[in-house]
């Protein structure tokens, strides 16, 4: 791992009325690392992810991002124009519900090609070849390239959403419960795929999940959240096998008894 983190979050706070959904959260994401955020539902992890991705304004704190061209920017202080530009070039966001991250009435090829077209690619043949290559990488048959994702199964839609995000080789990808809502066997296949892609593309990932099994498989490092704050963080195996905080112990044991 390199010397500087790609993303540094400092003192991030997000309130809804009097309640702090995210309370003074600081964390770092290192290049090539998969960071898992775990916690019960309502612990603030999705809100944290939404603030990081600029999808929701935060009330305090900094999200310092080291851009591809070597600048350090605060995602929360950027103009909307600059933020949106970064988000569609250097960042990706995988939604829990693939419908939120796909154009359901645009062909699979068009879905994968959209970010490339936004970056100025104007050769239909090349766009289509790239789309076919990515469909292969996410294990979707080439003959589905002209079909609309509306007709795809949930697992296929999720894989297509991942391809659509990774096609521009983003540097940071945020994932919100990417395996939620999928059957167990479909989940397993998706997890294998994610593991491989993350390694191959060398992207840094923050993944939010309530499923410790998913976290163990994918994440290098984990952060445990409770009531908007950080409880504990550490290497995944260490944290799951030897939790220090009583809350983490509860969390881990409850998953073991399930």
């Amino acid at each position: 791992m390199s010397e500087t983190p790609i993303l540094e979050v400092r003192g991030l706070t997000k309130r809804f009325g009097a309640r702090a959904a995210v309370r003074d959260v600081s964390l770092e994401l290192w290049p090539g690392e998969v960071l898992g955020i775990v916690g019960e539902s309502g612990s603030g992890k999705t809100t944290l992810l939404n603030c990081l991705g600029g999808r929701m304004p935060a009330d305090a704190g900094e999200v310092l991002y080291h851009t591809g061209d070597g600048r350090e920017v605060d995602m929360l202080a950027l103009s909307e124009a600059d933020r949106r530009r970064l988000l569609r070039t250097e960042w990706g966001f995988v939604h829990q519900n693939p419908r939120d991250g796909l154009r359901p009435d645009v062909s699979a090829g068009g879905n994968v090609g959209e970010r490339l077209m936004a970056l100025g690619q104007r050769h239909y043949g090349n766009l289509r070849d790239t789309a076919l290559d990515w469909l292969k990488q996410v294990e979707i048959d080439a003959d589905r390239v002209d079909d609309k994702p509306r007709a795809f199964s949930g697992g296929m839609q999720q894989r297509l959403q991942i391809a659509r995000n990774l096609v521009t080789h983003p540097r940071v990808v945020l994932m919100d419960e990417p395996t939620g809502g999928l059957d167990v066997s479909v989940q397993a296949r998706l997890l294998d795929l994610l593991r491989r892609l993350v390694r191959d593309v060398g992207v840094s990932v923050i993944i939010v999940t309530h499923d410790l099994g998913v976290a163990r498989l994918l994440a290098d490092r984990l952060i445990v959240m409770r009531e908007g704050g950080l409880v504990e963080s550490g290497l995944t195996d260490r944290l799951l096998d030897d939790p220090r905080e009583p809350y983490t112990q509860l969390l881990v044991s409850s998953v073991l008894t399930v």
Binding site: R88, S107, G110, G113, M117, A118, L119
Partner: peptide, 15 residues
């Protein structure tokens, strides 16, 4: 942000 406009033309060619 005009990438999506090309998606429409792309879809024309697909169809």
């Amino acid at each position: 942000e005009y990438g999506a406009m090309h998606v429409k033309l792309f879809e024309d060619i697909v169809r």
